[in-house]
C-alpha cells in the first residue's frame, strides 16, 4: 500500500561508511570514470586481453598462417604439436591451427550474435511486460512460460531440419546456416532474460525516482529508456554473457548431430566432438578447442562482471 511510513532513515548502519561529501577537485569525464571502475577489476582486464587476443587471432590469423585447413595429409595423421603443425593434426592429417582459426570465427560470431538475439527479444518482452502490467503483462508472461515449457532440443532439431534447406538456398551454404543457428538459439534462450528484466522493472517502478520522473511529465518511452532500462542493466549484462557460452555449446551440439554447419566446416564445438574417439591417442585434438571455448567463455563472463560495475556510478572508485 502506498501510504507513507514514518520509518526514518536516520539509522546509522552502513551510512557511516559513506563520505558525506567528496573533496572538490577536477572531475573525470563519465567515460573515464567508467574505465577507472572497470580497471579495478583485475580479472576483467586480463579477460579483455585474452578475448582480444582470441578475436585478433581468428581475424588476422589466415594472413599469417597460410596452411590450407582442408588439405588432407594421411601421412601426418593425429600428430601432436610440432613445428610444421603447431597445434598438431586431426584424424585426416588436417592442420588443427588453421581449423582452429577458421572455426573460431564461426564459434565466436555465433556466440555473440545468438546472445544479441536472446538479449534483444528478452529485454523487449520483459520491458514491455514490466511496463504495461495488467493484460499485456499476463499475456507476455504466459508466452514466456510456454517457451520455457517447450522441449528445447527436439524443437531445435525440428526447426533446423525444417528451415535448413530454404535458408541455404537463400543465403548460401554458410550464411544461411549461420543465420538459422543464431535465430533459433537466440529465439529459444530469451525467456530467463525476459523474466529478469520484468522483475527488475516491477521493483524499480515502485521507486520514488520513477514517480518523480512521471510527475515531471516524462513519457512512457522516456521512463523506459532513460530511467528503467539503465537501472535494470546490471543483471542483464551478466545473464547475457552466460548466453554467449550457451550459444557456443549449443552450436557444437547441433553440428555434432549433423544439423549445424556441414561436416567439412570446422567450428570449435564440432572439432571437440570429432576428437572424442581419439582422446587416448591424440588428446591435443580435444584439448585445444576445449581450451579455446573455456577461455573465451570465462573471459566473456569476467568482462560482463567488470562491465556491470563499470556502468554503475554508485561503485566508488
Amino acid at each position: 500500500m502506498p501510504g507513507s511510513t514514518p520509518a526514518s532513515l536516520i539509522a546509522e548502519g552502513p551510512e557511516v561508511f559513506r563520505a558525506p561529501e567528496l573533496v572538490a577537485g577536477p572531475r573525470l569525464s563519465l567515460r573515464r570514470q567508467a574505465w577507472r571502475r572497470f580497471r579495478k577489476h583485475t580479472l576483467a582486464v586480463a579477460s579483455l586481453f585474452i578475448l582480444g587476443f582470441l578475436v585478433l587471432g581468428v581475424v588476422v590469423g589466415p594472413l599469417l598462417w597460410r596452411v590450407p585447413m582442408g588439405a588432407i595429409d594421411l601421412s601426418a595423421m593425429l600428430q601432436g604439436p610440432l613445428l610444421d603443425h603447431p597445434f598438431g593434426t586431426n584424424g585426416l592429417g588436417q592442420d588443427l591451427l588453421a581449423r582452429m582459426i577458421f572455426g573460431g570465427r564461426i564459434s565466436l560470431a555465433v556466440g555473440v550474435a545468438a546472445m544479441a538475439v536472446a538479449v534483444g527479444i528478452g529485454v523487449a518482452v520483459g520491458a514491455i511486460a514490466g511496463m504495461a502490467s495488467g493484460r499485456v503483462d499476463a499475456a507476455l508472461m504466459w508466452l514466456t512460460d510456454l517457451f520455457l515449457a517447450l522441449p528445447q532440443l527436439p524443437l531445435l532439431l525440428l526447426l533446423m531440419y525444417l528451415f535448413r534447406g530454404a535458408l541455404r538456398a537463400a543465403f548460401g551454404d554458410e550464411g544461411g546456416i549461420f543465420l538459422l543457428i543464431v535465430v533459433v538459439i537466440g529465439g529459444l534462450r530469451w525467456m530467463s532474460l525476459a523474466r529478469l528484466v520484468r522483475a527488475q522493472f516491477l521493483s524499480l517502478r515502485e521507486k520514488e525516482f520513477i514517480e518523480a520522473a512521471r510527475a515531471l511529465g516524462a513519457s512512457r518511452a522516456r521512463l523506459m529508456l532513460r530511467h528503467l532500462l539503465p537501472n535494470a542493466l546490471g543483471p542483464v549484462i551478466v545473464a547475457g554473457t552466460i548466453e554467449v557460452a550457451n550459444a557456443i555449446i549449443i552450436e557444437s551440439t547441433l553440428s555434432f548431430l549433423g544439423l549445424g554447419f556441414p561436416p567439412d566446416v570446422p567450428t570449435w564445438g564440432h572439432m571437440l566432438y570429432d576428437a572424442q574417439q581419439y582422446l587416448d591417442s591424440a588428446p591435443h585434438w580435444a584439448l585445444i578447442p576445449g581450451a579455446a571455448i573455456f577461455l573465451s567463455v570465462l573471459s566473456i563472463n569476467f568482462i560482463g562482471d567488470g562491465l556491470r560495475d563499470a556502468l554503475d556510478p554508485r561503485r566508488v572508485i
Binding site: I10, A11, E12, G13, E15, V16, P20
Partner: peptide
C-alpha cells in the same frame, strides 16, 4: 546524536 555520530556503533 545524528547519523554518523557513532552512537549505534
Amino acid at each position: 546524536g545524528e547519523s554518523g555520530s557513532g552512537k549505534t556503533v
